[in-house]
């Protein structure tokens, strides 16, 4: 471990002193503004979560417009993944994994819907609508 760390430090010094020009020959610096365009990930501690808000009523409307075609009227019975229910089935021979029964973090739900849903227009939902 000690020798590995020492080798890393030696490598860092070598890069810093021997080839600083070489390092800049690849690519270009990323600007904060363009990073913000792509920096969509959200962690369980809330880091990355954009400001926004919503109501249950608005949520129903967004769900009906964007989600029911695949996931069913109430998140059940659609042609794609079931979203609700399944609690108590995970130890059975036919576990039902849904957002309600299996997803451990709310931030994952925001991250995934915001980046990948609806299936035919990924990334089209606003922060509030997500």
């Amino acid at each position: 471990m000690f020798s590995t760390r020492r080798a890393c430090i030696a490598g860092a010094f070598a890069l810093a002193f021997a080839s600083p020009v070489l390092a800049y020959e690849f690519g270009r610096p990323a600007t904060p503004d363009e990073i913000a365009l792509w920096d969509i990930d959200v962690r369980p501690d809330g880091k990355g979560l954009p400001p926004g808000s919503g109501t249950v009523e608005r949520g129903k409307q967004v769900f009906a417009e964007n989600c029911t075609a695949c996931h069913g009227d109430n998140g059940v019975g659609g042609i794609k993944d079931r979203l609700v229910g399944g609690q108590g089935t995970l130890t059975s021979s036919a576990p039902v994994k849904t957002v309600g029964s299996y997803w451990p973090y709310a931030t994952t739900l925001f991250d995934y819907i915001h980046r990948a849903m609806p299936y035919r227009a990924p990334g089209s939902l606003s922060n509030d609508d997500t």
């Binding site: 962690r43 299996y102 931030t107 991250d111």
Partner: peptide, 8 residues
């Protein structure tokens, strides 16, 4: 980050 693919 606990994305959908590593949790669900």
């Amino acid at each position: 980050w606990m994305t959908r693919w590593e949790t669900a």
